[in-house]
Nucleic acid binder design. Structure first.
Lengths: 254, 254
DNA sequence: CCCTCTATGTTCGACAACGAACAGAGTTAA
DNA sequence: TTAACTCTGTTCGTTGTCGAACATAGAGGG
């Protein structure tokens, strides 16, 4: 608590709501109504934002963290459905009307997010203005990502999927450095840890990544894209089309 | 053409917009605005409603047909993302704002649907009334189905997936009789035809289905549910929660 | 420093799904 | 009836992933 009280003021100077691309895309008018109610929250690795079936209390607008929407089955096996960073928000079910989903939201890369009370979000949404249409377009981008995940799970090898996953993460980070164990990646992809170890070893031998004990450094992004299946670029192209203000390449990058 | 001119009047007496559960759930007020613009169209097996990237001209409200949202990859391999019958509509991208999707819409079981000009749909949607909120809830149901498909593709066997697929289809049909070759089912599931033949053979030996040359008869639905993975019931339960007026069991059934 | 814990590396046999090839059986058209 | 075609059945060897078991090595605490 004392250390968090320490951190918050510093964090608040480093983070701005505009770092989230959806918040940034809103007009000054809407921003003035929403921003006073935003609350900067720390998002530590592994934090669970909601469980399957939970009624959502907040929506989260990541600034520099990454959140995975993960599905967990009865037997404990899991699979990532989609991933959300500063380009999106977590909690679309709030304005879709369901209030809950069958997935779990979990922080995959630590950082910060702005959160907003669900009712505030719904109030603005129900003005039927900009926010409504922005959220609809974002939802379609999310749908595209889910559909592509389904296809990828069906047809592509672990090697290809690992490449796709690394690229999706990379686009949502400031640098080429991921803090992520192979075990966690395996959970996301819904495969065995050993499978990830082998695939990562092959990428390393090809000079694409370096890694050790929970740190992954992408050293050759270009080659990573070549080794990935088409799924990455399909999702990226479609997301850029739907949210043109929201190009992932331009974010935070040099 | 002459035979179609023959069929239409008969079909129009047998089909009503209310046979689609979404249309039926609208208030008289909204129905009065929309129904005059609905057009009953025949939906023959294999008809492609739109290709990946096409700008959608219409939305389709199935009455007794089933439409698959299919993703087709660069190399021709395919996978079904979700399935739509009288409980839903085809073309959510129209009001989501994207106007197009990365999937293909194809008729999986012949029948009829009411179609509505995209602009009419958007006009009513942009009144920000009932239709908006109904479409949002339906979209979330669709999202749930896609997410579950992704998980199912990752973790479950062909046998389980075939059961799931048969159940999803059965819920959208009047009787227990599917007109569908194993080849087509294989395309939907994104697996080899031989794999479906073997799985279907096993189901037959267990007394669950009969089939021959493009006709499948489910003789023991109860057992089919036991053999299916959890994915079927998760999607069904969540769909019923989101669209409670829209219980699949009660449709057209005895 | 040692000990423990966590992350990664490696190997084994098992198995489900694959690609390819071909055989039979039912349906339709000539 | 014959011929062509479609749908289903079956087999073969191959491959990717699995489950399990165990080895090694870096990190951190006592």
């Amino acid at each position: 608590m004392p250390q968090s009280a320490n951190k918050q003021p510093l964090a608040a100077t480093l983070h701005q709501p505009e770092h989230n691309h959806l918040l940034n895309a809103l007009s000054a008018d809407v921003q003035q109504r929403l921003f006073p109610h935003l609350e900067l929250v720390e998002m530590p690795l592994g934090k669970v934002l909601y469980e399957s079936g939970d009624v959502l209390r907040y929506v989260y607008f990541p600034t520099d963290c990454i959140v995975s929407l993960l599905y967990v089955m009865e037997n404990g096996a899991s699979a990532e459905i989609s991933v959300v960073g500063f380009e999106g928000l977590v909690g679309v079910a709030l304005f879709m009307g369901g209030e809950s989903t069958t997935s779990r939201g979990v922080v995959q890369s630590a950082g910060y997010a702005y959160r907003l009370f669900g009712n505030r979000m719904k109030d603005e949404f129900n003005r039927h203005g900009e926010l409504l249409y922005l959220m609809l377009r974002y939802s379609q981008a999310l749908i595209t990502q889910m559909a592509q995940t389904a296809v990828c799970n069906r047809h592509h090898s672990i090697d290809q999927q690992l490449c796709r996953w690394l690229l999706l993460s990379l686009d949502r980070l400031k640098d080429n450095h991921l803090i992520m164990t192979q075990e966690l990646i395996a959970n996301m992809l819904g495969v065995r840890r050993e499978g990830v170890t082998e695939a990562a070893g092959r990428l390393h031998r090809q000079g694409v990544i370096d890694y050790s004990r929970g740190h992954i450094l992408v050293t050759n992004r270009c080659k990573l894209e070549q080794l990935s299946c088409e799924c990455y670029s399909v999702v990226k192209t479609e997301t850029d089309r739907l949210l043109p203000f929201n190009k992932l390449d331009k974010a935070f990058k040099k």
